[in-house]
């Protein structure tokens, strides 16, 4: 089963090598649900690493040990996997990852200028965190939103069609603790830990927030309707749909 609903939890920032009993019991219960989604337990490793980040804000030594024990792996095996993927952090992450797309398309449309502005404004470089712990700034690769270039991602929510000024406003509001809404996403950006818990497969109940599509997404849809363009109709219903009954397998 891939969908579970348990309340989201925010653990305290920790840098210890093992969890206390209460935390461990809670994580064990979560891990049991994660492992149950897969025919083979090891497949749970990526979601479990997201779960660890939801607890500690990065892949902590305690988290690595927890994954290893849960799945019967060595800590070296877990580390080898964790270091392969860019979303797993070796150091405590800021509350918000602000990622500026600087792959070619966004870079040319203005992403490089946005990056320079944010880096100067925040006084941090790539994969560095502001001293207040609010923001980790990153240069990110194409995030599948090129029709909204230049794109900025905050905790992997879309901030479309950005400018240096709009990006600065976003980070200032985040640092001031205000709720900030992405262009296409939930009603407000959640914390890095809350996001990590969703990525571990625990829904936060926010799927119905936000738009279905932005303007660029529906341009073809809208244009076709305006011009009366359609795909050919399906053949007559009685031919195309043999019957409403279904046959067993």
């Amino acid at each position: 089963m891939s969908v579970e609903s348990t309340p989201s939890t925010e653990g305290a920032a920790v840098r210890r090598s093992a969890y206390d009993d209460a935390t461990r019991a809670r994580l064990d219960a979560d891990a049991t649900q994660v492992v149950a989604r897969y025919p083979e337990a090891r497949s749970a490793l990526l979601p479990l690493l997201h779960l660890v980040q939801s607890e500690d804000g990065y892949v902590s030594p305690a988290g690595i040990a927890f994954c290893a024990q849960t799945l019967g792996l060595s800590t070296a095996e877990v580390s080898a996997v964790a270091t392969f993927y860019t979303q797993y952090k070796r150091r405590p992450n800021g509350e918000y990852t602000v990622g500026v797309c600087t792959n070619t398309l966004c870079a040319v449309m203005g992403g490089d200028a946005i990056w320079e502005e944010l880096s100067d404004h925040l006084g941090v470089g790539n994969d560095e965190t502001t001293p207040d712990g609010a923001i980790t700034l990153e240069r990110v690769e194409c995030n599948a939103a090129c029709d909204y270039a230049p794109v900025v991602m905050v905790n992997w929510e879309f901030f479309d069609n950005q400018t240096p000024a709009s990006a600065v406003e976003t980070v200032d509001r985040l640092r001031a603790g205000e709720a900030v809404a992405p262009t296409r996403g939930a009603a407000s950006v959640c914390s890095f830990k809350a996001m990590s818990r969703v990525l571990a497969g625990f829904p936060d109940g926010r799927a119905d927030e936000g738009v279905g599509a932005g303007e660029a997404t529906t341009r073809g849809t809208v244009l076709a309707r305006e011009r009366g363009w359609t795909a050919p109709p399906f053949p007559a219903a009685d031919q195309a749909q043999p019957s409403d009954q279904v046959k067993g397998s």
């Binding site: 891939s2 969908v3 990526l46 997201h50 993927y85 979303q87 990622g99 990110v140 995030n143 599948a144 991602m153 905790n155 992997w156 929510e157 879309f158 992405p182 296409r184 996403g185 939930a186 996001m195 969703v198 990525l199 497969g201 829904p203 936060d204 926010r206 799927a207 119905d208 936000g210």
Partner: peptide, 15 residues
Amino acid sequence: GELLHVYRRLLNAVA
């Protein structure tokens, strides 16, 4: 993993 809201929508769609 860099598509948070897409992941939410997919989990919800399966449910």
